[in-house]
Amino acid sequence: MKKLFYVVALTLAAIPTAFAEPPATFTEAKVIAKQKIYLDQASSAMGELYCGCKWTWAGKSGGRVDLKSCGYEARKVKTRAERTEWEHIVPAWTFGHQRQCWQNGGREQCVDSDPTFRAMEADLFNLYPSVGEVNGDRSNFNYGMVSGVAPQYGQCTTRIDFQQKVAEPRDEVKGLVARTTFYMFDRYKLSMSRQQQQVLMAWDKQHPVSAWEKQREQRIAAIMGHDNPFVTGARKWTLGYAPQGADAAPMAAARPAGKPTLASAAEGSAVIGNSNSHVYHLASGCPGYGQVSQKNQVAFGTEAQAQAAGYRKAGNCK
């Protein structure tokens, strides 16, 4: 419990310079994902995974969706549409079915008896907040192209084909879900169908890594202790790719142990945002750069990244 408290207590700004151990359970992962990766994303332009909705945090790891922010209309279950849920981009059902524990007793058996399954279930690269209703509708369906399906969630462009059991996410995240899927299948040596490979390879090509996806990858790598090589460019998925497994995964650069000071956090970032005011400060020309409370610091590499996350430049910057 002490260890979990330490991990959660670290601020987002600490991520570029501080190494923290990966979460051991899905429950821990959801709390850490909120505090360390998505805390400042609830009101960002990117929004949640499937519809780009903004949300407000509620409780340890949940949130309440602002349906008007994305023009969302509930398909069937409004109460579920109004809350965020943690989506496994590669569903637990998908990776669980490739484990013997699932055959012996399903997800509960895997959680109880299989350390590899627990690692997969808690892998931060594979988690993203999403509108609960869409998360439920997506179920364990593979990603793919959906045609002939009318809009199901108002202005949200994600489509679910319940008959074919296929989900097509909005264009803005197609590249991200493809590279996340490649990572999961590569790291945990999972088998992927030829059809699924072809769809995801096309999305990977059509939708290059965005500034936010790169920043997300860096935040997660600092905690997990390794990169997603399909985001960094160290690996490329090709048809018939042979998964290499965790032992072969490129490791992230070592981070110094211990909780960083305000100065050490600031030194590693060109831009420091204040998660409380959503104002950012530059290392040069902004008097407030070194004055942001450590608990409110959010590190950005560029002004563009800060602006994309919904931050505005401090008025006293020269």
Rank of each mutant, 00 (worst) to 15 (best):
G106H: 13
G225N: 04
K78T: 14
T158H: 10
A254M: 03
K259L: 11
W86A: 02
L176H: 12
A283P: 00
W203H: 09
D247C: 03
Y72K: 00
T56H: 11
R118M: 13
S269Y: 01
A263V: 15
M1T: 15
A304K: 07
W57T: 04
L49I: 12
G148M: 03
D40V: 15
A29R: 09
Q155H: 08
A58F: 12
V209C: 10
I32N: 01
Q198P: 03
S61K: 03
H226Q: 06
Q195Y: 09
L4N: 09
Y72C: 04
S264Q: 12
P169N: 04
H226Y: 12
L127E: 02
Q103M: 12
H207M: 10
A58Y: 13
E267L: 11
V7T: 13
R216N: 07
A246Q: 03
P22T: 12
H207N: 15
K36Y: 07
P243Q: 03
Q297N: 01
P16R: 00
E87A: 10
G136Y: 00
L176A: 14
V279Q: 14
Q41N: 13
V166K: 11
A58D: 15
S43A: 13
M224F: 04
V199G: 00
T232R: 03
L176K: 12
V131E: 01
A119N: 02
R187D: 05
W212G: 02
E48T: 01
G285R: 05
Q98W: 10
D137H: 14
G233Y: 13
V90M: 02
R219K: 14
G301M: 05
F5V: 12
A253G: 14
P22D: 09
T157S: 15
K259P: 00
D112S: 11
W203R: 07
V199Y: 05
K174H: 07
I160A: 02
G62L: 06
K259D: 04
A299E: 04
A266T: 05
L12K: 11
G154V: 08
Q163K: 14
A24E: 14
A309Y: 10
I220P: 06
F26V: 14
Y6K: 14
R80K: 12
V177E: 01
S284G: 02
F141G: 00
K68I: 10
W55E: 03
S210E: 07
A178L: 09
K236M: 07
R216C: 07
F182M: 04
V31N: 03
A266V: 05
